[in-house]
Design a protein around this nucleic acid. Structure first.
Lengths: 219, 219
DNA sequence: ACCTGAACACCGTTCAAGT
DNA sequence: ACCTGAACACCGTTCAAGT
């Protein structure tokens, strides 16, 4: 019998379930039901639950709208990072998978390549390029983590981060207690402003002479 | 009957299991066995598996050696961030939990408070302090993510990230293909150098005038 | 090659009964 | 209040049989 499904079918249904019912809602059985088959059918397409989750990460990555390169590498770097962040925000229930599952599919590496390429256009290479890539990439993933489960993340229920922190130990955590209400109010711009900080750092950090075997590039 | 265990007992055994057997090795039953009881006994101390995982995150957070404040806020910021990173690296199997589980215990907030306090000593407050805190925090968590599951992370088995990337699509991913071998060689210094970039960015980024209701502080 | 139901091992948790 | 075994619902996956 011919293949009834494509990998894309499976990815779409799986991501839809995660978006609708959360991560816990995605099981082999629930996905199979969504595709109107038995659970075992899925194993013709996917090795394991783990592999299925990687497929979901790929599906999310494929939704990143990678911007066309311009002649402004800094703006390009910002654009790719922003595109990633926008996609993650649109699928918050999938963020734990994005943070946690390793993929090396074309789909998931395409945004990474775009980011690295933009930085390379800035004149970096070798170790410098690697460090810059890691730094920007870490910032983007870390902001996703902060949003999801960070110390001052927003709440689902009524209790704000401010209240939670204050209730816990108002005296032991004076600075957090002071910041917490800011986090609750000032929402949605941490990413842009934080990214500006990181990119400014990139521009203002002198590149040390190559210490390993790798060339440090120009500048 | 008096309580046979303390929460600290449970945390220690749970973290030990995660360190030894990985995250999948930690189950209610395996933890109970480690404590020489039945699985149900654990529910006298912990509400659910989810709560147990938060307890593991607390246990890891408690291991962070928070440095004493000095008169150099930048050095202090660096020291707290480095202490966090060192602790995460020492318990790699727990990183998925650290990235994913939300805690608001004293233990987990103490390093966050130390980080925020160091930045506050740098003269930031209000929105600026919030943004700075989020940015440094995101970088630290993101580096942990990169190490664990990022695009150029190191491998358990023989196949290097370089090979993996190259095999997949050498032409479509030229920049990553070029960087990949650097990641394999240049190991352990991305954090320091990336942190320098972020901190330089902090110092070199002008603070915009307050746009929300929050005061933007001095400078 | 792909499909699929039955069955198995395992896991979190409820229940009910103990002290 | 804390302990605990039996039992239940659920989940990933193996097996064996089909086309």
């Amino acid at each position: 019998m011919r293949a009834r499904f494509t990998l894309a079918d499976i990815q779409q249904h799986a991501l839809a379930i995660v978006d609708r019912d959360g991560l816990a809602g995605l099981t082999m059985r629930s996905l199979a039901a969504s595709l109107q088959t038995g659970a075992m059918t899925l194993y013709n397409y996917v090795d394991s639950r783990e592999a299925l989750e990687e497929l979901v990460v790929d599906a999310v990555s494929a939704l990143v709208e990678i911007p066309e390169p311009t002649d402004d590498w800094l703006a390009d770097t910002r654009a790719v990072a922003t595109a990633l962040w926008r996609t993650f925000r649109a699928h918050p229930a999938a963020i734990p998978l994005v943070l946690t599952r390793r993929t090396s599919s074309r789909a998931s590496l395409a945004p990474a390549e775009a980011l690295a390429a933009a930085l390379a256009r800035g004149g970096m290479d070798g170790v410098d390029l690697f460090v810059a890539f890691r730094t920007v990439s870490a910032f983007v993933m870390g902001i996703a983590q902060n949003e999801l489960a960070g110390p001052l993340s927003r709440e689902d229920d009524a209790t704000s981060a401010a209240q939670r922190v204050a209730t816990l130990a108002p005296d032991a955590l004076p600075t957090l207690t002071k910041i917490a209400p800011v986090g609750a109010t000032f929402t949605g711009h941490e990413f842009e402003r934080g990214l500006t900080i990181v990119l400014n750092g990139l521009v203002h950090t002198p590149r040390p002479p190559a210490s390993t075997g790798q060339a440090s590039g120009l500048s």
